[in-house]
Amino acid sequence: MALQHLTEDTFDTAVNAAPLAMVDFWATWCGPCKMMGPIVEKLAGEYDGKALVAKVDTDEEADLAEKFDISTIPTLVFLKNGAEFDRKIGVTPEAALREVLDANL
């Protein structure tokens, strides 16, 4: 599965069905988020079929951002079948994201 852009309507179904998911909470006005973009896209391709890699635009989906208590962006939330088990706040190197994904495949 390629990179998914989730909304309030699609979030629960997509994430609950995924044994492992990484969701990037971001926004268009945020430079550090733009920087994470290519990394998240690359991981979406590489983990295709193994993990759901998705993005949530916090500007469009303010309720989702509030539900996950996002207080800075980018924030990357890791979930197993919809339950959060880890998160990385701020710009995070690719290797650190890979570490969490690989340890939970």
Partner: peptide, 16 residues
């Protein structure tokens, strides 16, 4: 509290 109510970037996190 960095990332939990402390931010270095107004343009990034202001909207939240």
């Amino acid at each position: 509290y960095l990332g939990k109510g402390v931010s270095y970037c107004a343009t990034c996190d202001g909207m939240l």
